[in-house]
Amino acid sequence: MFTVTVRDHLMIAHSLHGEVFGPAQRLHGATYLVDAAFQRPELDADNLVIDMDLAAREVRGIVSALSYQNLDDDPDFAGTNTTTEFLAKVIADRLAARIHDGALGPGARGLTGLTVRLHESHIAWADYQRAL
């Protein structure tokens, strides 16, 4: 399996509901490194997994739509704990939709998997992996 990963970052505000979250129940900021890893079993005719520039632009577009937002105010997330794990899935699903819409070019047709990793800190992160 071949993999290409592109990286960006995300800065949001949110609060989490439930005693398990302790002080994170209060409104706070979070900054994540976002890694999007694209997988395919064979390289395309140009010996690529994906056009890295197109992949980076699409990831940037998705994370920039979330950045500098208070996710508590976003109707898409009403009543939802926007945990690191949850946000990894949101980004992966939005990226998968862009891939299926053709935004990453014809070379993306051979992609079989996508993993989005959100690094919450240098010692903790969460992944969401999905088929394409």
Score class of each variant (00 low, 15 high):
residue 51 D to F: 09
residue 117 R to I: 12
residue 42 E to C: 01
residue 97 A to D: 15
residue 12 I to D: 12
residue 30 A to C: 05
residue 11 M to W: 09
residue 130 R to L: 14
residue 120 E to I: 05
residue 110 G to S: 13
residue 50 I to N: 01
residue 41 P to Q: 14
residue 117 R to N: 13
residue 15 S to Q: 12
residue 21 F to M: 02
residue 80 T to Q: 08
residue 39 Q to N: 13
residue 85 E to R: 04
residue 24 A to Q: 12
residue 11 M to E: 14
residue 79 G to N: 06
residue 63 V to D: 00
residue 112 T to L: 09
residue 105 G to H: 08
residue 99 I to P: 03
residue 132 L to S: 10
residue 49 V to K: 01
residue 43 L to F: 07
residue 64 S to P: 00
residue 26 R to E: 13
residue 62 I to Y: 04
residue 118 L to F: 07
residue 14 H to W: 05
residue 121 S to T: 12
residue 68 Y to A: 15
residue 57 R to F: 11
residue 10 L to G: 01
residue 50 I to F: 00
residue 70 N to S: 06
residue 90 V to M: 00
residue 10 L to D: 09
residue 85 E to P: 02
residue 8 D to V: 03
residue 42 E to G: 01
residue 20 V to S: 13
residue 120 E to M: 06
residue 105 G to M: 10
residue 119 H to E: 14
residue 42 E to R: 06
residue 118 L to V: 09
residue 37 A to V: 07
residue 124 A to D: 15
residue 52 M to V: 07
residue 42 E to Q: 08
residue 43 L to S: 15
residue 77 F to N: 00
residue 119 H to W: 15
residue 2 F to D: 09
residue 31 T to A: 10
residue 108 A to Y: 12
residue 12 I to P: 02
residue 49 V to T: 10
residue 72 D to C: 04
residue 87 L to T: 11
residue 121 S to P: 05
residue 101 D to Q: 08
residue 49 V to M: 02
residue 122 H to P: 11
residue 86 F to V: 01
residue 41 P to T: 14
residue 123 I to G: 09
residue 5 T to C: 10
residue 78 A to C: 04
residue 33 L to K: 15
residue 79 G to C: 04
residue 122 H to F: 15
residue 98 R to M: 08
residue 131 A to W: 10
residue 105 G to E: 15
residue 102 G to W: 04
residue 119 H to L: 14
residue 71 L to V: 02
residue 122 H to Q: 15
residue 99 I to Y: 05
residue 116 V to K: 08
residue 22 G to V: 15
residue 110 G to T: 13
residue 47 N to W: 06
residue 123 I to L: 13
residue 72 D to R: 04
residue 78 A to P: 00
residue 76 D to F: 03
residue 108 A to Q: 13
residue 100 H to A: 15
residue 16 L to N: 02
residue 62 I to V: 11
residue 14 H to Y: 04
residue 70 N to T: 10
residue 80 T to S: 06
residue 30 A to I: 09
residue 91 I to V: 07
residue 117 R to T: 15
residue 3 T to K: 12
residue 60 R to F: 03
residue 51 D to M: 10
residue 91 I to F: 00
residue 67 S to A: 11
residue 26 R to S: 11
residue 118 L to C: 07
residue 35 D to F: 07
residue 110 G to A: 14
residue 34 V to W: 02
residue 25 Q to R: 10
residue 104 L to G: 02
residue 29 G to E: 11
residue 128 Y to I: 14
residue 57 R to W: 09
residue 41 P to Y: 11
residue 51 D to H: 09
residue 20 V to T: 10
residue 14 H to A: 04
residue 119 H to I: 13
residue 115 T to Y: 01
residue 104 L to E: 06
residue 61 G to I: 06
residue 71 L to C: 05
residue 65 A to F: 02
residue 116 V to N: 08
residue 98 R to F: 03
residue 71 L to Q: 02
residue 108 A to V: 09
residue 33 L to I: 12
residue 20 V to M: 08
residue 67 S to T: 05
residue 102 G to T: 07
residue 101 D to P: 03
residue 126 A to Q: 14
residue 39 Q to M: 07
residue 80 T to V: 13
residue 111 L to W: 13
residue 115 T to F: 00
residue 129 Q to N: 12
residue 82 T to S: 05
residue 79 G to A: 08
residue 44 D to T: 12
residue 11 M to G: 15
residue 122 H to A: 15
residue 69 Q to C: 14
residue 120 E to A: 11
residue 13 A to H: 03
residue 54 L to W: 01
residue 131 A to I: 14
residue 4 V to D: 09
